[in-house]
Structure formats: C-alpha cells, structure tokens
C-alpha cells in the first residue's frame, strides 16, 4: 500500500518540505486589500458628475465636431480654402467664437476625463498614478488656457 500512496503524490508536492513550529510555512499576503470597514464617501458626487459629463458632453461634441469637420474640410471648397483670412473671417462672428470655445473646452475636458479613467484603471502603483495624472492635468490646463486666450485676444490685423 505504501507504494500506492507515494505514486499518488504528484511532482508538485513530490519532495514536500516539512514545516513545523520553528520553521513555519510562509504567510501569503493579499496583494491588495479592501478596507476593513465601510469606506467613507470621499469626494461626494464627483464620480457621478464626471460620469454624467462624459455622456452629455459626448452628445454635444458629436454635433460640434461633425459640424466643424464639415465646414472646414468638406463644404465650400474643402480644406484648400483654409488660411489666415478664413479663420479671421470666422472669428469675427461671436457665433463661431462661442462654437470653437465650447468645442475646445468640452473636447479637452472630455478627453482628459477619459484619460483619467484609463489611468485609474490601468496604473497599478499610487506613484505612477500621481505622476501620470499630474502630467495629464498640466497638459489639459495649459491647452485650455492657451486656446481660450487665442480665441479671446485674436487680432486679425496682426503682422
């Protein structure tokens, strides 16, 4: 019977190390843990607002971006008509200023929020997360401020 018993032990446990009180088996720590008690609500409704913003801005952006692409690239001569004069002519009208401003803000915030989600989902270490998000927020704020500045202070007579 003893031979039967030994053959019934696979190679994974073949040369079993004996653990005892002085030489205990290693403790397996969970790589990640949930907190022991119900977590406190940390940021109020921020996650819900971000989620809603993605849906609503997405709907508005479909109209804004498709309209923008049609005007810039398809209608009335297509891409060849675009020049300094064309842009200056459009930005003389408050309607196109508001259109472009809205598109800039919504697209940047929509994209930044999407990337924030991606970083939350894929960055594993808190430090990586911090740096990636810092980079993202800096780039977003810089682009939005620069774009806004250009739209508001645009001077068609610039030389």
């Amino acid at each position: 019977m003893s031979t039967d018993t030994s053959s019934a032990i696979g190679p994974v446990e073949g040369d079993a190390v004996v653990y005892d009180v002085d030489n205990p088996a290693p403790l397996i720590e969970a790589p990640r843990k949930r907190t022991g008690k119900t977590p406190r609500a940390t940021r109020g409704n921020f996650e819900m607002a971000a989620w809603l913003f993605m849906r609503l801005s997405g709907v508005v952006l479909v109209v804004l971006v498709i309209g923008h692409l049609l005007i810039q690239l398809v209608l009335d001569g297509g891409v060849s008509k675009i020049g300094f004069a064309f842009v200056a002519g459009r930005w003389a009208s408050p309607f196109w200023q508001v259109w472009d401003l809205l598109m800039l803000w919504l697209a940047m915030l929509h994209g930044a929020n999407g990337l924030r989600t991606v970083i939350n989902d894929y960055a594993e270490r808190p430090n990586t997360r911090l740096w990636l998000k810092g980079l993202l927020y800096t780039a977003t704020v810089f682009t939005i401020l620069l774009g806004t500045l250009v739209i508001f202070t645009f001077d068609p007579n610039i030389r």
């Binding site: 119900t38 977590p39 609500a41 940390t42 921020f46 996650e47 819900m48 971000a50 989620w51």
Partner: peptide, 9 residues
C-alpha cells in the same frame, strides 16, 4: 456607499 469613487461609476 455605491456613489463612492470605487462604486458603480
């Protein structure tokens, strides 16, 4: 509780 940052969103 589920409105938290690790909740349904």
């Amino acid at each position: 509780i589920l409105n938290d940052k690790d909740g349904v969103w």
